[in-house]
Design a protein around this nucleic acid. Structure first.
Lengths: 152, 152
DNA sequence: AGTAAATGGTAAACCAGCTTGACTAAAGTA
DNA sequence: TACTTTAGTCAAGCTGGTTTACCATTTACT
């Protein structure tokens, strides 16, 4: 192991990070969150008060699947729903205190990973790595839509 | 877009590469392959003649799921099965000519991606990027098992 | 050699997380 | 006012896995 082409290395590295964060999250009592939830959290943390349809569009899933996901997150106490102020068909979804606590934990754990990596290769190389990835994505986005979504 | 923490960048970059390879593969007539198949192909290309159980272990799925996957790949002409020479319970799975053609195409497309990336940031930085990822994986493998498997 | 345990594969039921398609009710628009 | 669009619901179905149980063969042990 510990070799292979660049795409494989990217996949393994990402997988490793996800496993690590997932495990530590579980140790902190957040046992019922899947990676897909993380993307929902991230979206909701930036625009608190989104509709299920908007969430679905962002995650690249149907509105039905999005509603189902929100149902689940609501049942587990991570999000809250309230009636839309002007549109009586709609309901606004936002993070609950527990949801905020979870995403803050994820941010902290992510930062810790980056610190560890900086310790291994140095701030300088890590910065360049980040820049390079952004460069690749910028190049790709000329012909493809670049999204942050479940990988496969 | 085109920002975010390092794990998100890794995910987006990987996803972008996979989408690109998947699309180009489809353009070459390999329309019925999923990413998970790629891992099976990679495994089989290195040790031609593996059992379904071994494949399952490598992919991190049950043997039943592995057999199902092989059934599918056989039906689509990517792998062949022959009786195991010494163990009459078992059957050996290996890549068919079409399977080989597919994986060779994947290798070529992957190489093309890496060339494009080298063109964007230079051979030198790309090499360092690769080294850094290997470093991260090496570090992680002290406490976790690092595997090349579906990401989530 | 004889028997028990392990192993490769099969069969069937089930499940999660999505999809498609048809629908209701509210909102926007001509 | 009438038509179209939109947010969400309901129900059925699919995919890619899992669990449980099983058979047949091989391997290990005495």
């Amino acid at each position: 192991m510990l070799q292979g082409d660049l795409p494989a290395l990217l996949a393994m590295t990402f997988r490793t990070v996800m496993d690590r964060i997932h495990d530590q999250l579980a140790a902190d009592g957040f046992t019922d969150v899947r990676p897909a939830h993380g993307f929902a959290f991230h979206f909701l943390s930036h625009r608190s008060g989104a509709t299920a349809v908007e969430l679905g569009e962002h995650l690249g899933i149907t509105k039905q699947a999005a509603v189902q996901l929100v149902d689940e997150l609501e049942k587990r106490g991570y999000v809250e729903r309230r009636p839309h102020p002007t549109d009586r068909r709609s309901r606004l979804v936002s993070l609950s205190p527990r949801g905020w606590a979870c995403i803050e934990r994820v941010v902290a754990l992510t930062r810790k990973v980056e610190e560890d990596w900086a310790g291994l290769v140095g701030e300088d190389r890590l910065t360049k790595l980040r820049e390079d990835l952004v460069t690749f994505l910028g190049d790709a986005s000329r012909e493809q839509t670049v999204t942050l979504r479940p990988v496969w």
